[in-house]
Write a protein that binds this DNA or RNA. Structure first.
Length: 296
DNA sequence: AGCCAGGTGTACA
DNA sequence: TGTACACATGGC
């Protein structure tokens, strides 16, 4: 059974692919020869998918199993959410027309979709790992973590991984995570998040229904989730369009570069941006992050 | 050698 | 409310 998704109006496979290819230590998907590979768990089964682009469609193959109709539907749903394919970018592009910096960002990366995290636990733990350390180090920690505690599937001599689930992580000790170079604090934060999901009913759908402010409060109750991590998850997983991690160093660096500033933006300037950009916060932030990668 | 990386909680005033 | 400090490691 062939699986296809008709691409939305504003879509660039090349831009999405470039973002997915930003680290060679990424272990939760693979990119090769203009194809994207990812292991999914659908209805309790491991499905390895391959995504390629042709004209106005995404062609998806499941490499390890013949899929039935409901699995096909679930795969399409997953990719739509992962790559944010069901949103129109027209309002965002219209908004950007009136500002030179935003106009240039859109010109350089038109069609880029916000590659997100369908899974809340993965999103939060990845954010925690990335707190205050450089991205390369963060990827190293994630790789050790996923390879040690994640479920995997081998296909043609290569291993593909799922992110460890909250159940498995709640059983881990701080010491076990420290061996992977988590700091003591981050090890605690990570286990806290697993417990919040298992014991306190932290749930993606609940956060979707709560509204931005309430959802942010809910997340910040967990020790280890501050403003930055909460907004990161609300932007990349829950997908509130106004969510933006204003304290993000990458955001600061990108703004400094784009606006040719001599110093990083002040806190007051950042708050002003967040207010002016409003519902376009998330996409503007994502495009600014994209601008930090080479071959713009 | 020392500072900075996709921050946060805690300890103090 | 506001500021100092530890935290893990690696790159420059």
């Amino acid at each position: 059974m062939s699986i296809t998704i008709k691409t939305p109006k504003e879509f660039s496979f090349k831009e999405c692919y470039r973002f997915l290819d930003r680290s060679d230590k990424e272990c939760l998907h693979d990119v090769k020869d203009s194809k994207v590979y990812k292991l999914l768990t659908i209805q309790g089964q491991l499905l390895l998918i391959e995504i390629e682009h042709s004209k106005d469609i995404l062609l998806i193959n499941c490499l390890n199993k013949r899929v039935n109709k409901s699995e096909k539907t679930a795969i399409i749903e997953y990719v739509n959410e992962w790559w944010d394919l069901e949103v129109s970018l027209a309002p965002f592009y219209k908004f950007c027309k009136s500002d030179p910096m935003l106009k240039k960002l859109v010109k350089n990366h038109r069609g880029l979709r916000m590659i997100g995290f369908p899974d809340l636990f993965e999103c939060l733990v990845w954010a925690i790992i990335g707190q205050q350390i450089n991205l390369n180090f963060a990827y190293s920690i994630k790789q050790r973590f996923v390879e040690k505690y994640g479920t995997s599937l081998e296909h043609k001599g290569q291993k593909y991984y799922l992110f460890p689930d909250a159940n498995a992580v709640s059983q881990l000790t701080v010491e076990a995570l420290k061996e992977l170079k988590f700091s003591r604090q981050k090890a605690n934060y990570t286990i806290n998040v697993a417990n919040a999901i298992l014991l306190d009913g932290l749930d993606k759908n609940k956060l979707v229904k709560l509204g931005y402010d309430e959802a942010k409060n809910e997340l910040k109750k967990i020790k280890g989730i501050g403003d930055w991590t909460a907004d990161y998850a609300l932007m990349k997983c829950i997908r509130y369009p106004n969510a933006i991690p204003l304290g993000d160093v990458g955001l600061h660096n990108a703004l400094k570069e784009q606006l040719k500033m001599s110093t990083k933006p002040t806190k007051a300037a950042l708050i002003k941006f967040g207010t002016e950009w409003g519902t376009h916060n998330g996409y503007i932030c994502f495009y600014l992050w994209r601008s930090l990668l080479k071959d713009n």
